[in-house]
């Protein structure tokens, strides 16, 4: 699968852009947290698209964001 680029995103309507980012993020998140993947992806999609693109290119920053999201979710669900 070719990497998602800013210009590919810009060519799509806003709602579609989140969908495209979600489709890329979900498998990566699912590999780390299968049971929470949908919720974590939903949370991360609230982040700016430009930042989400950077996270897709940087596994390290993606992983730290995922752990942040898991911590927030766990507090939220208490």
């Amino acid at each position: 699968q070719e990497p998602l680029t800013a210009s590919m995103l810009a060519a799509a309507p806003p709602q579609e852009q989140k969908q495209m980012l979600g489709e890329r993020l979900y498998p990566l998140i699912h590999a780390m947290h299968p049971s929470l993947a949908g919720k974590i992806t939903g949370m991360l999609l609230e982040i700016d698209n430009s930042e989400l693109l950077l996270m897709l290119e940087s596994p390290e920053s993606l992983h730290s964001k995922i752990e942040e999201a898991v911590a927030v979710l766990q507090v939220h669900q208490m």
Partner: peptide, 22 residues
């Protein structure tokens, strides 16, 4: 009590209903 519907859940292949970029 918390808002159980947050965050919206993403499902692959299902059109995203969350907020678009502002």
């Amino acid at each position: 009590s918390s808002n159980a519907s947050w965050p919206p859940e993403f499902q692959p292949g299902v059109p995203w209903k969350g907020i678009p970029n502002i």
